[in-house]
Nucleic acid binder design. Structure first.
Length: 329
RNA sequence: AGGCCAGUAGCUCAAUUGGCAGAGCGCCUGUCUCCAAAACAGGAGGUUGUGGGUUCGAUUCCUGCCUGGCCUGCCA
């Protein structure tokens, strides 16, 4: 194993089966980072509690997500993959960090304002403190680099400020200020052709879907509304199917679709069939690994348990330094 | 802890002095299209937060509880 450049941490809420948006936006990047960094990937179930009313599906969603991550190429022998709540030290660190966090900073964050708008009936203490818990996640594992989309930039900057406040107040350098790695997250638009792909909007395509289900979803995709008839010329620039072609089809095929759509050489059905075929082919290895892994659910849980064990070792080491720095008796 | 307000379809909200619980959006189906969208037509979806009470009859009135919001007080 070659020398790694540092430690990467990233977390994602347990949303169950992952879709193309999850894959292209995050998982693909998680997999790639393993080559150069020591990676810590966390399924943040505690964070999920801030917006979830029922925890009935929590266990299943955690399992499905872990399964997808592994099938996508996370290597548990090198990478630490675990469930947030399995390392209770994070809640302790969260509490200490909360003491150096001005409330105004939290209520000013755009994500908080958005949540207040979306769920005014459930604005709880934990929701306000969400970024503090996130900071604890990152800092607990002495993270050097956090790969996130640009929308998370305020949270990483917040984390850095909290680290500086903590270190200054207790005159220590026990906490490491993480760097942000802005990932060019391609904005994956859902099959409605309008909004970002997401499970809650039901405009997604699951990685683990069967080829038939995938084709079915692809056929449901919104195309260029101007192209009413087969004989009408289309405009790939405004068609979401074309943006998927650019990801899953060969350069020649993309060129062909681009050309033939514009002069009505091919119809949307042809275009969708070709895209679905390529999509299914590129997902096939993933799907095979997934069903193989799904033969032994215990194995997935074992990976998470083992990951938690390794994570706890790092976490406890950090916390001993933290408690000492604070001056707790 | 007390006072006041609110809770109706997945979402936003209606329902006249107590009288068959509705609309818009969303969802599903059909027509139309190469598909999808749009448009049009149709359809599904409710223990009216919950337990009692009054009444021939309660979404509506009374009451206990639950949840949320605002205000006052108390404790840390």
């Amino acid at each position: 194993m070659k020398q790694k450049k540092g430690r990467v941490f990233s977390g994602a809420r347990p949303t169950g089966r992952q879709h193309l948006g999850n894959y292209l936006g995050a998982i693909k990047n998680y997999v790639a980072l393993q080559d150069d960094y020591e990676c810590v990937y966390c399924i943040v179930d505690i964070h999920a509690l801030t917006t979830m009313e029922t925890t009935l599906a929590l266990r299943q969603n955690t399992y499905e997500m872990a399964l997808d991550w592994l099938a996508a190429g996370i290597r548990p022998d090198e990478t630490i993959m675990f469930v947030q709540s399995h390392v209770p030290q994070v809640t302790e660190l969260h509490t200490y960090l909360s003491m150096v966090t001005p409330l105004g900073k939290l209520t000013d964050l755009p994500t908080f304002k958005e949540k207040v708008r979306l769920q005014p009936q459930n604005v709880n203490y934990g929701l306000v403190g969400y970024p503090v818990l996130m900071a604890a996640d990152i800092v607990l594992y002495r993270t050097n680099l956090v790969p996130v989309g640009i929308d998370q930039a305020p949270h990483i900057e917040f984390t850095r400020e909290v680290v500086r406040s903590f270190n200054y107040r207790y005159q220590t350098d026990v906490l490491i200020e993480p760097e942000m790695k802005a990932t060019e997250t391609p904005k994956v638009i859902g099959i409605d052709g309008q909004q970002k792909m997401s499970k809650s909007l039901d405009n997604h395509i699951e990685l683990a879907a069967t080829p038939e289900e995938t084709l079915q979803r692809v056929m449901m995709m919104v195309t260029d509304p101007q192209r009413m008839r087969r004989t009408d010329p289309g405009n790939p620039d405004v068609c979401n199917v074309f943006s998927f072609h650019k990801i899953f089809s060969t350069a020649e095929e993309v060129e062909m679709v681009n050309l033939e759509c514009r002069r009505a050489g091919i119809g949307c059905v042809d275009c969708k069939r070709l895209m679905a075929k390529n999509l299914n082919e590129s997902l096939q290895p993933f799907r095979e690994r997934r069903s193989e892994l799904a033969q032994n659910p215990d194995q997935v849980w074992d990976v998470l348990q083992e990951g938690a064990k390794r994570a706890r070792a790092i976490a406890e080491e950090t916390m001993q330094g933290v408690r000492r720095a604070i001056g707790l008796p």
